[in-house]
Nucleic acid binder design. Structure first.
Lengths: 344, 344
DNA sequence: ATGAAAGCGCTAACAG
DNA sequence: CTGTTAGCGCTTTCAT
């Protein structure tokens, strides 16, 4: 019990079971090739010896590590990080079910004043056969890495549409932000609101434009006015608060749909300054269903990250199984998490 | 450019450089063994061929994967998850600097009505040589896994003190919660508060008791009253709000120190219900410096997770380097992040 | 300072 | 259905 005996190997099991090493290997990887009684004998030996295959040896032989690489963004990139935690969880879970583990690596230190190298880390991991494939998450940056990875013939799937690259061939999974915002807007309309404002980001963010489109679509479809009812500011509580104050001043909206929970929190602050109560007086909806939203009772659009992860893993498996062919694009629907800031 | 040429191997490099394979290996792992000119020639060949050592082969030979295992807790365990995101980031960063990657695995699905197996996943990863060591984070559960891992002679370090196990021999790193809360309490006292209430968790959580001790220590040291100025409730916004309301009613505190940001948000709600302004009227301090605190302007005790990660990795390296000997315990000081809810 | 030989533990390919 | 042979790419002896 106290001797750190080296772990059993295939050969040990084979000897104990009175079969060849190959048969043990088959017992593990292709059980149906064995006669039931042989199989049972081998399994008993495995049990007795507490045998677990050595991954390194298996990897060397099969040229597969059963590891999926995920790069953690170096800094807080815009707003997407709010949900990163949940996404990582979901991915680990989904990968685990498929027999994969998730290997985290960092974007690498960014030297002062230098552009972060979007490819840092990928290359080494790939060529050193440390991972079998990647999940790329920050495609909204203009996805320089997706084209680079494609060039390198690296197997990868993206969480996020290839917005700027209509020729992209890689599998991707994304969430329909526009539909989410549309549903949020309709929800506010159903609560009796007519002057529903959009608080979004400055132009240039495809995700931001997509979300705004959802608001605009819902408003025009319902015959509601949009003129003067929108503002675009950097993601931040203060900026959101100021923009909300100014909108309240200029165009008297009775509800706000926001591109992020952060902006929505800013709106909440502006309301509080004016003695207005969220929900009863003014409806507010955020985006991402972050911890902030959950804790503050903020109605928010929630991305189905668990589902995203499952689809990503499925695509990955398809990618790595020559006989399977992966869907190239999957668009998932978010859900509106209704809380107190949008109901009277 | 288009041919997916197989990656170069050591032999390729050796041939190109006109040396033996062993020399190339030395060039990489023990450069000082080579004559400068040979070294340069080998390095040029490596460059030309874009060579990266095959990890699987290296792992098999050296019996080390340069992977650190981190288990993601199955569910939302109490309050600690608020900071998990930041911690994972920090660990990935610190590991990367030391040439390690982080392998994430899940606690495994917990069958309906069953106890989650605290050891699920560890065993296989270890024996299959998939990881070299583990970082264990949820020691506050009564750390069943630390003893189990110790028995199995698995190299691991813990984020969290071995509260219930004075005989524990494994390295650990923790944050001095008591000192953090003490500093928070003193900060409120310095702001002129005398009736400072403690809003904590029900007994039974060592972390909770530790934090409470910090408040109590600061109060008695300053000769301030504590009687009737505390409440213990489950972690939650609603529970925190109710407890705060009841304390305000019964003992008129002018400030609250809370065991978590969640509880502090509850206090904020209770204040708002009464038309009291956080900071000006009543001081409020939370714990963890979560996104919620940052977004709401909540003063909070911030754990130095980056530093924790660095120490954990250092301990891990010591553990795996026979010549080095690791410190068994490191206690780090948190920092008070002062925002608007505690200043007038 | 450099090279030759051996083998880590496994599985693919082929025989029987 | 089972066994034999070979070798994945690397590093650790041990010679030179």
């Amino acid at each position: 019990m106290d001797t750190p005996r080296p772990p059993a190997t295939l050969a040990d099991v084979a000897e104990r079971a009175g079969v060849s090493r190959q048969t043990v290997s088959n017992a593990i990887n292709n059980p149906d090739l064995l006669r039931p009684d042989t199989l049972a004998r081998v399994q008993a030996a495995i049990e007795d010896l507490d045998y677990t295959p050595n991954q390194a040896a298996r990897h060397l032989r099969t040229r597969a590590s059963r590891l999926i690489g995920l790069r953690l963004a170096p800094a807080q990139e815009f707003t997407a990080n709010m949900a990163m935690d949940r996404f990582v969880h979901a991915l680990v879970e989904a990968s685990g079910e498929a027999g994969y583990h998730v290997l985290l690596f960092s974007g690498g230190r960014v030297a002062e004043g230098e552009q972060p190298d979007p490819l840092a880390g990928y290359d080494d991991l790939l060529r050193s056969t440390a991972v079998d494939a990647f999940v790329v998450t920050d495609t909204y940056l203009g996805n320089p890495q997706t084209v680079a990875l494609t060039q390198r013939r690296a197997p990868f799937v993206a969480f996020g549409r290839p917005w700027d690259d209509p020729g992209a061939r890689h599998p991707w999974v994304d969430v329909d932000g526009a539909a989410g915002v549309e549903a949020a807007t309709e929800h506010l309309r159903d609560q009796g609101h007519e002057r529903i404002a959009w608080l979004g980001w400055p132009p240039g963010s495809r995700i931001g434009e997509d979300r705004r489109a959802g608001w605009h679509r819902a408003m025009t479809a319902s015959g509601l006015p949009t003129a003067g009812l929108e503002a675009a500011v950097e993601d931040g509580v203060l900026a959101g608060g100021r923009a909300a104050a100014s909108l309240l001043e200029s165009s008297a909206p009775t509800a706000f749909v926001c591109a992020s929970d952060t902006l929505a929190v800013g709106v909440l602050g502006a309301l509080s300054d004016r003695g207005l109560e969220p929900g009863r007086d003014v409806g507010v909806v955020g985006f991402d269903d972050s911890q902030v939203a959950q804790v503050m009772g903020l109605t928010s659009v929630r991305q189905p990250l668990e589902e995203v992860a499952v689809h990503l893993v499925a695509a990955l498996r398809a990618l790595m199984t020559p006989t399977l062919v992966a869907e190239t694009g999957v668009l998932l629907q978010p859900r509106l998490e209704v809380r107190t800031t949008s109901t009277r």
